[in-house]
């Protein structure tokens, strides 16, 4: 139907086909245009215009899944049950996908000091600053340092309580938002040994999640903790970008619990 030169313009690498440069423009003549009943204008249609009805209905049929033929069902290959290798974790999995889910939600954004796990990197960043950064504590006395938890909100507050009020009032957050627990027992975690701090960490994580972990075999956890590879002292000083992860149970924070030994 289309002339070959147009088809080649569409599929070829030539790019723009400037019609204004082609010798095909016909002269316009409106001398007899005194009486006109037709007014050539470009028409806009608002989204709710009935002109769009058929197309919109087609779109909604697609959303409702009526248009689609049966798509392939992804079979999850079962593997023999294995345990998460992360220190202190005792969950078992029989598909790689569920393990991946577990790893991504629980072991990606983990505080290295208190082992709390957070749903997002932003919440972890805020946690590390507020809980384990001494400089932050000093600064907080002088200026507003408590960042709002909401993505895109740049407000900062003098205390975590002020922030909490802001979250409830402005962002309609629930008053018991479970990723905004106030800091308790200031500084105590630092004095305990590495092993103990991990256990404490686990407890506090449970407290923050308000869900009990299924009972963990104590001895297997200890074995696991002893076997877990500690980062070399050379690298533990550098801050590793969060997208890079060295093996299982990579955690972030100002120091690794192993170092406190």
């Amino acid at each position: 139907m289309l002339p070959p030169e147009l088809i080649s313009a569409l599929s070829g690498p030539a790019g723009v086909l400037n019609l204004a440069e082609l010798p095909l423009i016909q002269p316009v003549d409106r001398r007899h245009d005194t009486e006109r009943t037709f007014n050539p204008v470009r028409v806009r249609f608002p989204r709710e215009h009935e002109f769009f009805e058929d197309g919109d209905v087609h779109r909604q049929l697609y959303l409702k899944g009526i248009l689609q033929s049966i798509r392939e069902v992804e079979e999850r290959t079962k593997v023999s049950e294995f345990r998460c290798q992360t220190t202190g974790c005792a969950q078992f999995f029989d598909t790689l996908e569920s393990y991946e889910h577990h790893y991504n939600t629980l072991h990606r954004n983990v505080c290295s000091i208190c082992k709390r796990s957070f749903p997002s990197a932003r919440l972890l960043d805020i946690h590390i600053l507020e809980w384990h950064d001494t400089f932050f504590q000093l600064m907080a006395e002088k200026e507003n340092m408590y960042q709002c938890l909401v993505e895109g909100c740049l407000k900062k507050f003098k205390t975590s309580q002020e922030r909490k009020d802001h979250l409830i009032k402005i962002h309609l957050y629930p008053s018991d938002f479970r990723f905004d627990k106030p800091k308790k027992n200031k500084g105590k975690a630092k004095q305990v040994s590495g092993q103990l701090s991990m256990e404490l960490g686990e407890e506090s994580a449970v407290e923050s999640m308000e869900i009990c972990l299924s009972s963990v075999n104590e001895s297997s956890r200890n074995v696991n903790a002893a076997n877990s590879p500690g980062p070399s002292s050379l690298y533990s000083k550098c801050r590793v970008p969060r997208t890079i992860c060295f093996g299982h149970g990579s955690v972030r924070g100002f120091k690794h619990p192993r170092k406190t030994k």
Binding site: E100, N104, T105, P119, L149, L172
Partner: peptide, 15 residues
């Protein structure tokens, strides 16, 4: 909703 939105910035694509 606040939790659903919080998990949008999480690291698990399926979630």
């Amino acid at each position: 909703t606040s939790y659903l939105i919080t998990y949008l910035s999480g690291s698990c694509p399926e979630f």
